[in-house]
Design a protein around this nucleic acid. Sequence first.
DNA 1: TACCATTCTGACCCATGTTGTCAGGTATCA
DNA 2: TGATACCTGACAACATGGGTCAGAATGGTA
Lengths: 148, 148
Amino acid sequence: MRLSARSEYGLLALVDLTTAPGGSPVAAREIAERRGIPPAFLEQLLADLRRAGIVRSTRGAHGGFALARGASAITALEIVEALEGPIVPSVCMPNECDREGGCAAATVWTDVAGAVRDALGGFTLARLAEDQSRLDRAPLTCTPRRNT
Amino acid sequence: MRLSARSEYGLLALVDLTTAPGGSPVAAREIAERRGIPPAFLEQLLADLRRAGIVRSTRGAHGGFALARGASAITALEIVEALEGPIVPSVCMPNECDREGGCAAATVWTDVAGAVRDALGGFTLARLAEDQSRLDRAPLTCTPRRNT
DNA sequence: TACCATTCTGACCCATGTTGTCAGGTATCA
DNA sequence: TGATACCTGACAACATGGGTCAGAATGGTA
């Protein structure tokens, strides 16, 4: 029962973008270095976030990424779903279960999915960036599971 | 963001045990056949559930498994945690994050974990069994992701 | 126009986890 | 004593996740 590192990296990168001054784009490599994220991997994530309309990109020299909307209009739910697909805690969901009426387990998974969506939807990127800057002045280096 | 088939199978098997008459033990193979669960795999799950104190087993002829407690005293949370380990949605949880104060992402994962635990804790095995018998009279055959 | 910075895309690799299977051991009852 | 059924550990096949790499496309800048 866990989210992948994609969500972790994505949230960190977007918090980074939120604190970037003005609307000037930030290069992926710059974010990657600051946050300790593998650069090539981060590019993939940013591409997904762009396709989801969360981020906009400008190519060429002095290009990079910037938020497509205000940070208070972006929720953690959007980010996670953009990076991991829809929140579906099990294979046997109501409409995919072999049984017509669904089985009792399906109602459990539906409730869990709703709870997760509610929890994630309660966080805006603006709040996260605020929390972050309150947590520390030093550069953020939350580096989960780096293989040495 | 999903639970594995272990939880699915475990819930189905325990619902099956709940509706078993009296306290007489039910053989694992019997449950497996009725629910369409691979027998040897189910044995592993039942062993985990026994170690978690959710189920008690009696060996030998006419042996089998039965609930260790009343069905209203067993929650879906217990079952899922027994089969999949603790609900930890990400690697970077408060106490495991490299940063001392934790990063902003950690608070998100903590909230999500709490929401999932609450949702799962809201379901008792008794309610699930009741839901199930209300859903159908026919034998339950919720068979997720059978290969062919 | 030529060059460079940067995004973009797809293919690929490796480690790990999931979903089982199998063989044999052990306890209990008839 | 034999049949039944749990118990345990090893193992195999497959899917997924995490990450790398090469190269193409695009747009600023000199």
